Amino acid sequence: MTLPSQYQKLTATQYSKNFRQAVQLQTVSLDMPTGEDILIKNKYAGVNAADVMMGAGQYLLPTPLPCDMGAEAVGEIVAIGDAVTGLAVGDTVLTNAIGCGYREYYTTNYRRAVQIPAATPEIMSLSIGGLTASIALHVTGEMKAGETVLVTAAAGGTGQFAVQLAKLAGCTVIGTCSSDEKADLLRSWGCDRPVNYKTENLRDVLKKEFPKGVDVVFESVGGELFDICVDHLARFGRLITLGFITEYKEQPDVVTGVRIYYKLLGKMASIRGFNLNLFWSKPQILSEHMMKLIGLLNEGKLHPSIDPTEFHGVASAIDAVEYLQSGKNSGKVIVRY
């Protein structure tokens, strides 16, 4: 394979919650890997809500300027250093790191790449979305068979896995979404009670149909939806907060109300934060959950949904991030190279 002398990547050069203003498309030289490094030609990159926070300098991990964008990708190894073992040119790998995604080529230490059977959007969607859902529900949320699980943004790239994994675990699943089409998609994954929040009031649905409350909440929207979920936790209920996309583009909401312990203490309920980045120091847990996810995928028990809107090339990642922020997507948003 003849490699180019240059390639394109997307880099944040100033902090802004307007992703388009934060980033620049750059053309840089392509250097060959040495030592333990491998050079990967990316095929697909995943789009995540946190991209906006990375570009704003407000992510959970530092993003000092200039900062390359995109945090997950799959591709093919096209060159290796002389100290690389266990991987070869032609192997397909998955990478998770700030800066690995929105670029045509990526160089990294071979130990930071995970070999995969094929570089497909479906396998890539497991890396952040699948792992987040699996670890958050089973480890952080301590989900058990027979419980009622509420998933917000249930038709999104992460919510889709939470719905399916909760059903596979023997739970009753409620999922929120923004259209009847997405509600139909949730039903196809086994969701017991899709709630289109544009035509139904979630608070009323929970009060009438689930009067004892919900045992586990998988929550990534924030704002008023977070408040509703807290109010409807069951005794010993656990709310897992993974993000708050409603506040990503604006300043944090100023909340004037009773403190949260008034709502939790009597029910012995809890709010549990989840940050996948903290599990990179626990490779055994990551490996266990990734192997389980790939096994479910191969068995036909897990059905990743890839949003049909196509984005091609590094520059299109800007449009893809804005599309995700608009809430129009169903399933994982992908940038293709």
Rank of each mutant, 00 (worst) to 15 (best):
A83P: 01
I306P: 05
H138F: 13
I245H: 00
Q58E: 14
P304W: 03
I80G: 01
M54G: 02
I174C: 08
I260E: 08
K208A: 15
M53R: 07
T85R: 04
G223Y: 04
L242C: 13
P283W: 02
A320G: 06
H138I: 03
L168G: 10
V74G: 03
P304S: 10
A71V: 09
R259H: 14
F218Q: 04
N275D: 13
T148P: 01
S287T: 14
V163D: 07
L94F: 07
R238E: 10
K267W: 13
T92Q: 15
F244W: 15
M290N: 07
Y261D: 12
L150F: 09
T172S: 12
N18T: 13
R187I: 03
A71L: 09
A153D: 11
A166V: 10
V314G: 09
F19R: 06
Q6D: 14
I135K: 00
L242H: 02
L30H: 10
D184I: 10
L297V: 03
D192T: 07
V114W: 08
R272L: 13
S16D: 12
E310M: 13
G35N: 14
Q24D: 10
S125Y: 02
N329I: 08
T108D: 07
L94S: 09
H289Y: 13
T13G: 10
L25D: 11
K292H: 14
R20P: 00
S179P: 08
Y197T: 09
D215V: 07
K208S: 14
A133E: 02
V333P: 03
D51W: 00
M268R: 15
F210R: 06
Y15W: 12
E224I: 04
Q58V: 00
D215N: 15
L131N: 00
Y197N: 06
V335H: 00
Y197P: 01
W189N: 10
V52N: 03
G55E: 07
P304E: 07
M268A: 15
N298F: 05
I123G: 00
Y197W: 10
T63E: 01
V163W: 02
I306H: 01
I285S: 02
E36V: 02
F244P: 00
E200C: 08
C171D: 10
G90N: 10
A56D: 11
T34E: 15
E247H: 09
N275F: 14
D37M: 07
D204S: 14
G55Y: 05
I260V: 14
Q26Y: 06
L165A: 03
T176N: 05
I334D: 05
L137F: 08
S316P: 06
L186R: 05
L278Y: 12
I123L: 15
G35I: 06
V335G: 04
Y262C: 11
T172G: 06
L150C: 07
Q325Y: 08
A169V: 01
H289N: 14
T11H: 05
L87D: 00
